[in-house]
Simulated scan of single mutants.
Amino acid sequence: MKKLILGLSILSVFMFASCKEDASKKIDEANVVAAAERDANASKFPVLTFDETEHDFGEIENGKSVETTFSYKNTGNAPLVITDIKSSCGCTVPEGWSKAPLAPGESGSFSVKFNGSGTNKITKTVTVTANTEKGSEVVKITAFVKS
């Protein structure tokens, strides 16, 4: 019985050893080149640079609508895609931005309307969600609303 188990063990070792192929023969050089290029591009991000990150409307009357435009530029090494722009409340509405990719060096803009609600010093934030390294950028509007 021991000889039978020993014989089967030796036979299975030879079978497993003979089934091994040289792993280097299975590597496709085109896949290696594609992976190296992908890894090199993975560290390239667009950079969203604003002309101004905060706009002050100054003193405004309660209920008076005001609007400003935020201009930006892609100063990075990859196309910039803005997927969403949201404000901190319903009284501030961002409009006019493009979801089309913005090539490095190109510029764009969006407008922000504030309906003038509230009293005293008001600060509202607008969050721009994009494919930057951070994933989002924030711009602010401020005003002093007179009652």
Rank of each mutant, 00 (worst) to 15 (best):
A130E: 08
F114M: 08
E106F: 11
S43K: 15
S136T: 02
E54R: 15
F16Y: 05
T129A: 09
E95H: 02
S111D: 12
A35Q: 14
K20L: 14
A100F: 05
S43Y: 12
T123K: 13
I122E: 02
V47D: 09
K64C: 02
K26C: 00
S87M: 02
V139N: 06
K44C: 03
K140C: 07
F50R: 12
T123E: 13
T123N: 07
F50K: 13
T123G: 02
T123I: 15
I141S: 12
E133S: 14
L8I: 14
K20T: 07
F114D: 06
T83N: 14
V93G: 06
V33L: 10
C19M: 15
K121Y: 12
E61W: 08
L6F: 07
M1Q: 11
N131K: 07
T69G: 05
K25M: 09
L4F: 09
L80E: 11
L80G: 11
S88Y: 01
L48K: 07
D84C: 01
S136A: 03
S18E: 10
I5R: 04
K86P: 00
K134A: 14
W97A: 02
G105S: 15
F45G: 06
V126P: 03
A78Y: 01
N115M: 13
T92D: 04
G90V: 01
K124P: 05
D84K: 09
S88K: 00
K64N: 12
K134D: 10
F50S: 09
G96W: 13
D28G: 03
S136R: 01
N41V: 04
S24C: 07
V47P: 02
S87F: 01
K134W: 04
T83Q: 08
A42D: 11
T92L: 12
K121G: 03
P101F: 05
N115E: 15
S117P: 03
S12C: 05
V112G: 12
Y72Q: 04
V112M: 09
S24M: 06
E67S: 15
K25Q: 11
V13M: 11
S117Q: 13
E59T: 10
M15H: 07
S24D: 09
K140P: 06
T83S: 14
L48R: 08
T75F: 00
L4A: 13
V112I: 14
F45I: 04
G135Q: 08
N131Q: 12
N115Q: 14
I85A: 00
G7H: 09
F110A: 10
G76T: 05
K86S: 03
T53R: 15
F114C: 06
N120H: 10
E133T: 05
G108K: 04
K3T: 03
T123H: 01
S117L: 11
T132H: 08
V93R: 15
S71P: 00
S98R: 05
F14T: 00
A36P: 03
K20V: 11
S71M: 02
M15W: 11
F114E: 08
D56Y: 07
